[in-house]
Simulated scan of single mutants.
Amino acid sequence: MSGSRERRRKPEWLKMRPPSGERFTEIKSTLRDHDLHTVCEEASCPNLGDCWSGRNGPGTATFMLMGDRCSRGCNFCDVKTGGMEALDEDEPANVADAVAEIGLDYVVLTSVDRDDLPDGGAAHFAETIRAIKDRDPSILVEALVPDFRGDPDAVDEVIDAGPDVLAHNVETVERLQWPVRDRRAGYEQSLSVLQRVAESDCYAKTSLMLGVGEYDHEVYRTLSDLDELGVDIVTFGQYLQPSTRHLEVFEYVHPDKFDTWREVAEGEFGFRYCASGPMVRSSFKAGEFFVEAMARDGASVEEARERARARGD
C-alpha cells in the first residue's frame, strides 16, 4: 500500500455515471427515515446508482446491519472501523418496514464484523430475516454474513432463520488473504462457513475480487475448493481502490477475462450460476441473477420464484 503514489488510471469500461433519478431519491429517503445503513453507501459501491434506480426492476438496496463501524480493518474496504456501538433493537423491524415501503421482492442483508459480540451478531441477523419473512413470506432474502470467527453455532443460527441464499465472501485466493483481508479472517475459516451453508437447505454463495495480484491457477484452485464444498453461486468483480490509504490495484482485468471465468465456473465446474464482470459486486442485482439462474432449468420466472421459496420453507 502507499499513501503517496498516484492511483492507476481506470480504463473506459470502469467509468460509471453518478447516481440520480426519482427511484434513487425515494430509496435514499426511506433509508434515512428508518435510520438504516446500506453497504452501497458505506463501502462506496460503484453500482449504487444503477441498483437503486431500479432500471430493470423494483430496485435493490443491500441493508447493512449492526451499525456502520466494523471491528476489523480489511485493506480493501472503505467501511469505518472501531468505535463499536450497542445494537439497535429496533433495527430488524425497521428493515422490514423499509423493505415493505420500497417494495422489494428480493432483499440482501449484510453487516459489519462485530467481533465484540459473543455470537458475532448472528442472532441479530436471524431476527431481521424473520421480521422480513413474517411480514411477507414470499420475499426472497439473501444474507451476506461475516465469518463469526468460524463458530458453527452462529452460522446455524442464521441458517435456521430461513434465508433463501446465505453468502460469505472468501474475497481472494488463499495466498493473498493477507494483505487483502484483516488478519482475523482466513481462507480455511471462510471455507468452514461455506461448507456449513452448503450442507443446509440454503443456496451457498461467495465472491472474489480480481485485480489484487492473483494468478490464474490460484483462481482456478479456489473455484475447485468451492465446488468441492458444494457452493452453488460464485461472483467475480474488479477490485477498485477506495482511497490512497487502501490496497493498490495490481491490475485492471479486461472484461473478456471475466467472461472466461464465468464460462469456467458454470461450464467446467457446474456452479448454478456465476455473475462475472468488472462492475459486479456480490450483491449487485442479486435477485435478478438468482431468478435468471433458476429459470435456466426451464421454469418460468414465477415458477423459479416459487421453487426458491419452497426450498427456503
Results as ranks from 00 to 15, higher is better:
residue 155 V to S: 00
residue 24 F to M: 06
residue 311 R to A: 15
residue 83 G to C: 11
residue 288 E to C: 03
residue 45 C to N: 05
residue 47 N to G: 06
residue 26 E to V: 01
residue 241 Q to D: 09
residue 284 F to K: 03
residue 179 P to I: 02
residue 232 D to E: 12
residue 253 V to R: 05
residue 106 Y to D: 00
residue 219 V to D: 01
residue 235 T to R: 09
residue 302 E to H: 07
residue 274 C to W: 02
residue 119 D to V: 08
residue 224 S to A: 12
residue 125 F to A: 02
residue 156 D to P: 00
residue 40 C to T: 09
residue 276 S to H: 07
residue 244 T to R: 15
residue 170 V to L: 14
residue 128 T to M: 06
residue 97 D to T: 15
residue 279 M to H: 07
residue 227 D to R: 12
residue 4 S to V: 12
residue 305 R to V: 10
residue 48 L to C: 02
residue 80 K to Y: 04
residue 47 N to K: 03
residue 85 E to H: 13
residue 37 H to F: 14
residue 288 E to Y: 13
residue 1 M to V: 12
residue 52 W to L: 15
residue 98 A to D: 02
residue 239 Y to C: 12
residue 308 A to C: 09
residue 46 P to G: 11
residue 155 V to D: 00
residue 120 G to V: 10
residue 5 R to S: 14
residue 47 N to W: 03
residue 234 V to P: 06
residue 198 A to D: 02
residue 199 E to I: 07
residue 206 T to K: 08
residue 36 L to R: 08
residue 234 V to A: 09
residue 126 A to K: 08
residue 216 D to H: 13
residue 61 A to Q: 00
residue 154 A to G: 02
residue 7 R to V: 10
residue 102 I to W: 10
residue 149 R to V: 11
residue 122 A to N: 03
residue 225 D to F: 00
residue 123 A to V: 13
residue 151 D to V: 10
residue 258 F to L: 10
residue 310 A to L: 13
residue 230 G to I: 09
residue 67 G to A: 08
residue 286 A to V: 04
residue 73 G to P: 00
residue 265 A to P: 02
residue 216 D to F: 11
residue 237 G to C: 09
residue 184 R to E: 04
residue 169 N to G: 05
residue 116 D to V: 05
residue 248 E to R: 14
residue 278 P to M: 09
residue 120 G to H: 10
residue 151 D to W: 02
residue 55 R to A: 11
residue 6 E to K: 14
residue 72 R to E: 08
residue 279 M to P: 03
residue 162 G to F: 10
residue 10 K to R: 15
residue 155 V to M: 04
residue 171 E to Y: 09
residue 39 V to D: 02
residue 175 R to H: 05
residue 158 V to R: 04
residue 12 E to D: 13
residue 217 H to T: 08
residue 103 G to M: 08
residue 138 S to C: 02
residue 125 F to K: 01
residue 92 P to S: 12
residue 279 M to Q: 11
residue 164 D to T: 15
residue 120 G to L: 07
residue 98 A to C: 12
residue 121 G to K: 02
residue 221 R to T: 13
residue 18 P to K: 13
residue 49 G to E: 04
residue 198 A to G: 11
residue 248 E to G: 14
residue 16 M to A: 11
residue 266 E to H: 10
residue 112 V to M: 05
residue 62 T to L: 01
residue 160 D to M: 06
residue 179 P to R: 00
residue 299 A to N: 08
residue 109 L to I: 06
residue 118 P to K: 12
residue 307 R to F: 02
residue 110 T to W: 01
residue 151 D to H: 07
residue 221 R to W: 00
residue 55 R to Y: 14
residue 180 V to N: 09
residue 78 D to S: 15
residue 60 T to L: 11
residue 72 R to N: 13
residue 64 M to D: 05
residue 147 D to M: 03
residue 208 L to D: 01
residue 245 R to Y: 04
residue 258 F to A: 08
residue 212 V to D: 00
residue 43 A to P: 03
residue 292 E to L: 08
residue 14 L to Y: 09
residue 295 A to S: 15
residue 299 A to T: 14
